[in-house]
Amino acid sequence: MIFSIVVQAPPVQTQGAETALRFARAVLAAGHSIHRIFFYRDGVHNGSALTCTPQDEFNIPQQWQELAQQHKLDLVVCIAAAVRRGVINEQEAVRYKQDQWNLRDSFELSGLGQLVEACIQSDRVVTFGARS
């Protein structure tokens, strides 16, 4: 079965993002495929390259990146939600005249159309971290 996952939870303050990560691993371990993981609302903070986590805690953004590299996953961060929250790549930094950018490798910025396309392509779409 083809899954897509929507992450609206930020990486640290609530458990939603970590649960989504565990769910993604379980989906893959069960032999299913993941068409896309779409980060929306405060979930865009999962795409930050600058998260610094104590050694005995999970660095969730880094774990997304590792999972994406292992399984060639498509990690898409909603561009409208991200630029509002200061999660930007070099291209957006130029557009908005910022000196820095922080989007983590393996993540890309794109529009909400990627969420709708994921719905069209996937048998199941599972959302984590709604209602916050």
């Binding site: 409208a80 939600a81 909400l112 159309g113 969420l115 709708v116 396309e117 209602r131 916050s132």
Partner: peptide
């Protein structure tokens, strides 16, 4: 919260993609 506006944005995008 931004939830209401964010939900509307998703609904409008669905429509743009003819879903």
């Amino acid at each position: 919260s931004s939830a209401a506006r964010d939900a509307l944005d998703v609904a409008l995008t669905c429509s743009v993609f003819e879903q």
